[in-house]
Design a protein around this nucleic acid. Structure first.
Lengths: 357, 357
DNA sequence: ATCGGGCGCTAACCCGATTTAGCAACGAGT
DNA sequence: ACTCGTTGCTAAATCGGGTTAGCGCCCGAT
């Protein structure tokens, strides 16, 4: 059997004071409420000796705060891709002495309802609703029971919820600029989505935004996308198939793959056609999945800042909790986290390149 | 501001009964304590109408249970490899109406201490101590404050803690048998560890056990390991280097790679030497990392049952919690979860194969 | 009339903290 | 001597439930 914990009453008794006094001293309000140095020291010493630790459950009952936040996702907890989001959230929470409840909904609305309920039953101070991939989600009504933020997602209907998202449009621009900077102007193809804004996988916000950024940066340089192949799902086999299909008709000079798994498929297709990366074809991609540094040559990619997203979500959530305490209404601001370029080996200067900057 | 929750007192008042009566009815003890049908129905109806939900924090204060378990790992939450362990644990907990606290220690003992403390402060009913890779760990003393199990780890010093681990020895046997069944008897090399039991990465229990299983199964068939290359860390680049080194002197007929990332490096090395998988060299591996089905040909591998490990850990933890309640002492049983073979495309019959029975 | 006993419900205490209101002792001012 | 203000501490209420002991009532038996 586990031994009984030391309680405030134990400390008070051992120090020969009332529970009130012990509580005041230990919560640092002793000075303010005129507890003598003598008593203060005695209480602190006793607490130390007995290894007293306040019971947060009990405190929570009184104060209404459990010093806990809930992290609810569709399936983010099990995807390595986004595991770092949890890590960021975890560390942000830890810095403030908060713990993290984790829950997965598998995209099931009923499960989500039950999960949120279970978290509210445990008096979470706030909630993070995360999505595995960037998209719009239907915000459950019960969410209003506590402060909340959206992570990697936007509300389908307008809602006063802050959202934290990667800056995908800028990422698109950056990917395009990597190629432009290497002198590429012709034979740039897209694998995964495009060329039109509606040629994207269902619900994928990232696809649309990346596409916008790509077209914008290329457009500014007076460059046209030479063509594109869409993929119903962004997995290696679809990337392989799409790229093969492309190579049967044209020889691209550069590929912008919409994520690293697609890029892996593209590598395989290029290999099949005897084309070398980056000598024959340059490749730039998105996500910075571990695979990006495992393939050869290593893949130049625009990284999803998972860790930063998780941390930012917690930061925003805490300002939201603050706001809630002051009874102020939320506004639903959208926070964009920059996606950094990881320069590796899959991009070479265009052989047709003129001046280099 | 979030609206105030409906409390038991609200229900009691609305139903015109005492809090006691309401509590008895709602906790199902009404019949036992002779509450009339009439009152019982009234209370249930009122609770339903007011959408009453008991506050678990409050209940926890009285009963000592928070209906929550803690999942503490070195860095398991952020590794896709092991994310499914969390998923398994999550679902096991959910089935019992429990939530999961998540925490990472980064291998830092002080962080671990603080984390366990924070969890105990929140009255967790039990703890799962998980490791990202199978190994022995130093069990913190404070662990005795609540029931606990080890996941993917064994205690360094003898401790009465149950442990849940993949059956690595049998996995080793299975990997070897995959090759034996395909008729391979000669030219079988190991990449990652071996050939001696002490030729393994530091602290890696999996390496030792897989090696034991491999040697056992091969030995029973009267087959010798032709040679081996160790890797200081089981990453693709080390696998690549080790395999290259091997290919400079011999031409293997089959490789047993100690995990899929190493196998990926091996693929690259074989490609460099113009050798085809599986026509020239068969490969069998461990883990069933996503990459195993992305490489071509797809990799035959013995899967780590992450999901089952997580679930099993929760199951064992609950029997442990039960045991704790009955004040019985723990025994520290070791539970082994089978690792299934994923037959894919990287193993071909040995060209020198004779009879196949 | 009195007692015993089952029935149906509730008062009151408990969990472990926080917090409000206020008490006792003492010195200073009038 | 009396009021007033500090100082230093504590009693008691509170959070939202679970749990124990027992109260009032009615019926039947003595």
């Amino acid at each position: 059997m586990s031994p009984r914990r030391v309680t405030l009453a134990d400390v008070a008794k051992a120090a020969g004071v009332s529970r009130t006094t012990a509580s005041l001293v230990l919560s640092g309000r002793g000075r303010e409420l005129r507890i003598s140095q003598d008593v203060e020291q005695r209480v602190l010493k006793t607490a130390e000796e007995l290894q007293y630790r306040p019971n947060i459950v009990s405190r929570g009952l009184r104060t209404g705060s459990s010093r806990t936040i809930g992290f609810v996702s569709d399936t983010v907890a099990t995807s390595r891709l986004a595991g770092d989001m949890i890590k960021g959230a975890l560390e942000g929470a830890r810095d403030r002495g908060f713990m993290l409840f984790i829950g997965e909904t598998e995209g099931d609305a009923e499960l989500e309802r039950l999960l949120l309920q279970a978290m509210h039953d445990r008096q979470v101070d706030g909630l993070i609703l995360a999505s595995m991939f960037t998209r719009t989600i239907k915000v459950p009504k019960t969410i209003t029971a506590a402060p909340a933020v959206l992570l990697n997602a936007l509300p389908k209907q307008p809602a006063p919820l802050p959202a934290i998202l990667p800056d995908e449009v800028e990422a698109g621009r950056r990917a395009a600029r990597v190629l432009l900077d290497a002198g590429h102007r012709d034979g740039i193809y897209l694998i995964g989505a495009g060329p039109r804004l509606r040629d994207v996988p269902t619900e994928s916000l990232a696809a649309v935004e990346r596409l916008i950024g790509i077209r914008e940066a290329l457009g500014e340089a007076g460059v046209q996308v030479a063509g594109a192949r869409t993929c119903p799902d962004w997995q290696p086999d679809y990337g392989l198939e799409a790229t093969r299909d492309l190579l049967r008709t044209v020889q691209p000079r550069a590929l912008i793959c919409f994520n690293d798994r697609i890029a892996m498929g593209a590598y395989q297709a290029l290999d099949d056609f005897g084309l070398k990366v980056p000598a024959d074809v340059s490749i730039v991609s998105f996500d910075d999945h571990p695979i990006a540094s495992w393939v050869r040559p290593q893949l130049t990619t625009v990284a999803l800042p998972h860790y930063e997203l998780g941390r930012k979500a917690v930061d925003v959530l805490f300002t939201e909790i603050e706001r809630d305490r002051s009874a102020a209404g939320g506004v639903g601001e959208v926070h964009r986290v920059p996606m950094p370029v990881r320069h590796r080996e899959s991009v070479a200067p265009s052989s047709a390149a003129g001046s280099s900057g």
